[in-house]
Design a protein around this nucleic acid. Structure first.
Length: 664
RNA sequence: GGGCGCGUAGCUCAAAUGGAUAGAGCACCGGAUUUCUAAUCCGGUGGUUGCAGGUUCGAUUCCUGCCGCGCCUACCA
């Protein structure tokens, strides 16, 4: 509702200005919320029009106010010095629409979207950094779906890289385990934890003797030969760890549709197909001398003086060594950026090849997750060939991502490149205090840092399942003391919901570009700006209806039928109603916020919205007795207020992947 | 050296395309009518937005230069 009204207002003002001041070239209309609700719901700064119109801001504002005419949903406009046009909406009109849950049609762009997230190397347990990735990605998917878009969720699996090779080395060389022994281990619970420790030991083993690195190279080579024993062991390990990752993420209600693996990208010769096209388009050039002699190289992203010229012969022939990115090594093998280019051509349907597909994992809710295969099942969903992609990958890989985009441009796929979004976010690190708690010895330098990077190689970090277990245990303590009468199973379920709410909210409250310095104290907090705070607001709202012997969902659906526009006007129009009006106004903004989140690829705004709704509700809850209200009509209105805020808060939390327990 | 990003209250973070008095949470201090109410609410303390210039009617936001910090910059992935 709010979003729709804002669009209409912007449109009408733009139209009016071009009609009233023909010929003038004016900047776009900016609409923002005024600092206080007393001033209205929308504010338009008119300063930008003053100079081109050679007219004082206040006069322009007054002209718009006096001459624009009636706009549906807008009650009045006021001119405010030094140059704002403040707009007040028709509160009863907006409240009526909100109560009826009207959703004005929005323009939904056509075309499927592919969101790739999680993409953990399948060689060890997931840690908190991976959680941030998966939660951001999953929330973004929910945002897109809320906005009516069709989305496929992919989780890319690098099952043939050095990280998997290292764990293979650990099992075969350090532990001297046979394939059968390894297979038995994969069936043990939390096999990924075993690998976590082993991976750290392998890193130490390499450090002990540089000779050991040769074993890694051999193993890596062996994995690429799909028929080898090494490849079979790697497949065994990576598949088992992958299953564990899916289980871990499922604890947070995070699911995937398709798992493309690097092994199939290799075996189905995606690269060879891309290589031909890249050479034809002169995106790659062959170096005949210097440091990169014998390699096929590409210009590193961000180093071109004239990005438009990429792919042209004169540009390609002259890349300084420093600006070269090796795509194909002199021994003929291709690096990961090359594979990534081929893979992304596939995503946009530009490669002319496809994966085979087979079923891999069935979620408890019966949703099927598919995996790539050299020879797949006959019937399968159609993946790839999408209109837009979002890659949730941390900021450290932005240069590599940009290189892939540049390759697409060089191939002439401008539209694909324009719809390739690197959803970049910063890492999760640990506070020095947290690192110390984990038993990590800090150097003097480390102690002064605000955060310390986690390291899978060192086995230094907080594992996802451990954190979740701790959160559940902590929530369970609270639930047990508050609701000892509830059945064991019920308390467990509530504690889990609270833990997931706390974790997901925690990962979403920070903006993407902020490094999260992880700290148990903060992450385990259930008070203040947290998920449980928002969940609790909903529980409170629900409890009002319970006491009143009403079903909140039924009530909220029937609000519009029970309260007329005149009723809303009676209770919302007055200045004294501002406090309650703020709840209605904030509730009306959900779709608007969702749009903002998508446009800026920033889910943190959604967390802010949830917090704001919860905060407004808690204040209202404290200040306005509802069930004891003697005026029946007013009581109904107050209940409607509760019902609408509750509805929007539940929706907002659902988009964040957070559910609400029945009691807390 | 080059590229990207960051620097805001004691701590952790907000502040959409530049807008009205820079906001939250935590911590600390002081309070909350036997109610639908404490995983909550109200009040208080706390700021030269790293520094210096510039653009603008207006700068936390844009530009330039410094200072400090992080990440990337492999024929690793």
């Amino acid at each position: 509702m709010y979003r729709h009204l804002e669009h209409r207002l912007a449109q009408r003002i733009t139209e009016f200005l071009s009609r009233r001041y023909p010929g003038a070239s004016l900047p776009g209309v900016v609409i923002e919320p005024p600092p206080k609700v007393e001033l209205g719901e929308f504010a338009i700064p008119v300063f930008p029009f003053a100079k081109p119109l050679r007219t004082a801001p206040l006069r322009i504002a007054e002209t718009i106010r006096a001459e624009i005419g009636a706009i549906e949903g807008i009650a009045e406009m006021q001119v405010a010095p030094p140059g704002y046009l403040n707009v007040k909406v028709d509160r009863a009109w907006l409240a009526g629409g909100l109560a009826a849950d009207q959703k004005p049609a929005a323009d939904i762009p056509a075309g499927k979207i592919l969101v790739e997230h999680t993409s953990i190397n399948p060689n060890k347990a997931a840690h908190i950094g991976h959680l941030r990735n998966a939660i951001l990605g999953d929330t973004f998917v929910r945002l897109l779906r809320y906005a009516g878009r069709e989305v496929d969720i992919q989780n890319y699996i690098d099952n043939t890289g050095v990280q998997v090779a290292d764990v293979v080395v650990g099992f075969t060389q350090i532990e001297k385990k046979s394939r059968a022994e390894i297979e038995a281990l994969t069936r043990q619970p939390r096999f990924d934890y075993y690998c976590w420790d082993l991976y750290a030991r392998v890193s130490q083993w390499y450090a002990q003797d540089k000779q050991n690195l040769q074993v890694r190279a051999q193993t890596l080579h062996g994995i690429e030969d799909a028929a080898s024993e090494t490849a079979a062991i790697a497949e065994l390990i990576s598949t088992a760890v992958l299953r564990r990752h899916l289980e871990t993420m499922d604890r947070l209600d995070i699911e995937y549709d398709f798992l493309p693996r690097e092994s199939e990208i290799l075996q189905l010769h995606f690269w060879e197909a891309a290589f031909v096209k890249l050479k034809e388009a002169s995106v790659l050039t062959y170096e005949t001398e210097g440091k990169n002699k014998g390699c096929w190289v590409m210009r590193r992203a961000g180093t071109a003086s004239n990005p438009e010229a990429i792919g042209s012969a004169e540009e390609a022939s002259d890349i300084s060594e420093e600006d070269q990115k090796v795509i194909v090594r002199s021994n003929g093998t291709v690096g990961y950026v090359g594979k990534d280019i081929a893979y992304h051509m596939w995503k946009f349907g530009l490669l002319g090849r496809d994966f085979g597909y087979r079923k891999f994992y069935r979620y408890p809710n019966r949703h099927e997750c598919w995996i790539s295969a050299t020879e797949g099942e006959k019937d399968h969903p159609h993946f790839g060939d999408v209109a837009e992609i979002y890659n949730v990958i941390d900021a450290r890989q932005s240069e590599a991502q940009n290189t892939v985009i540049q390759a697409l441009r060089g191939l002439g796929h401008q539209e694909a490149a324009d719809h390739y979004a690197h959803f970049s976010y910063e890492m999760v690190a640990l506070t020095p205090r947290c690192a110390a708690e984990l038993g990590y010895t800090l150097s003097e330098e480390d102690k002064t840092r605000s955060y310390i990077e986690v390291s899978g190689r060192k086995g230094f970090g907080v594992k996802a399942d451990d954190l979740l277990d701790q959160l559940i245990a902590s929530a369970r303590n609270e639930v047990d003391s508050r609701h000892p009468q509830l059945a064991e199973e019920e308390r467990a379920a509530i504690a889990t919901q609270i833990a997931v709410g706390a974790l997901r909210y925690f990962m979403l409250k920070f903006t993407k570009q902020s490094v999260i310095a992880f700290d148990f104290k903060e992450a385990l907090s259930f008070e203040g700006e947290t998920g449980p705070y928002a969940q609790y607001a909903v529980v409170r709202a629900t409890s009002i209806f319970k006491k009143a012997a009403l079903d909140p969902d039924t009530f909220s659906r029937e609000v519009a039928g029970n309260l007329s526009t005149a009723d809303f006007a009676q209770y919302l129009a007055a200045e004294s109603a501002n406090e309650i009006w703020e709840l209605w106004l904030a509730s009306a903004k959900t779709s608007y916020i969702v749009d903002q989140c998508i446009a800026t690829t920033e889910p943190a705004y959604l967390a802010k919205h949830a917090f704001q709704l919860a905060q407004l509700f808690n204040t209202f809850y404290h200040r306005y007795p509802i069930l004891s209200e003697t005026d029946e009509k007013r009581k109904k209105f107050l209940l409607a207020t509760v019902a609408i805020v509750r509805r929007e808060l539940i929706r907002t939390l659902a988009v964040m992947g957070i559910t609400v327990p029945p009691v807390m």
